[in-house]
Simulated assay, not measured.
Amino acid sequence: MSTLKPEISNLDHTQGDDTASITIVEFGDYQCPYCGDAYPIMKEIEETFGHQIRFVFRHFPLANAHEFAFPAAVAAEAAGLQGKFWEMHNALYENQYRLNVELFDELAETIGLDLEQFQRDSASEEIKQKIEDDFDSGVRSGVNGTPSFYVNGTKFDGGATDLYQMLKESAE
């Protein structure tokens, strides 16, 4: 059984309650159509289960298949340096159908980032390293495609819909 390596730390992007009974880690790629499909379901899980859930996102850009996956991850990380990782994360998935190089600056403006700062940060080595560390973590954790989910540190065998179903059943 595959387990999450390394464990969640303050380097991760987390949403929700630190005391939540269920922690879901998603390894995702902003250009992956399956991740795009999973996005609204993950939103629904967060709305339905509220404080019971803590959600963590780690980058797993399949750069060979998706030319904008890595730059999109960079955009999310650069937004994160201005405290708006989740806003950019959401905007990228909501605009996935039109991912291109121009989109990143447009979204940065839309979510209210300092554009010059965003562009400077987007070029930083630290950000590229963070994405590579996330990717390595996926490889070490046994990720073989996106999206991949880990529930309380253990790989979940299935997609977002299966995850939602499992959570609903365990809540009953």
Rank of each mutant, 00 (worst) to 15 (best):
I8Y: 06
I8D: 04
L11G: 13
D12G: 05
T14H: 07
T14I: 10
Q15S: 15
V25Y: 00
F27C: 01
G28N: 04
C32A: 06
P33D: 03
P33V: 01
Y34Q: 13
C35S: 07
D37I: 10
I41A: 04
E47F: 08
Q52C: 12
R54E: 06
V56R: 01
P61T: 02
A65N: 08
H66G: 04
F68I: 12
P71A: 03
A72R: 06
A72D: 04
A73K: 02
A75D: 02
A76Q: 02
A78W: 00
Q82C: 11
K84T: 07
F85W: 03
M88I: 01
H89W: 01
E94C: 15
N95Q: 09
N95L: 07
N95W: 09
L99S: 03
E102V: 13
L103V: 03
D105M: 12
E106Y: 09
E106S: 13
L107F: 10
A108V: 13
G112L: 14
D114L: 15
D114S: 13
L115E: 13
Q117V: 15
R120V: 15
D121P: 12
D121L: 10
S122C: 13
E126S: 09
E132I: 11
D133L: 10
S137Y: 06
V143G: 00
V143W: 00
T146G: 07
T146N: 08
S148R: 05
F149Q: 03
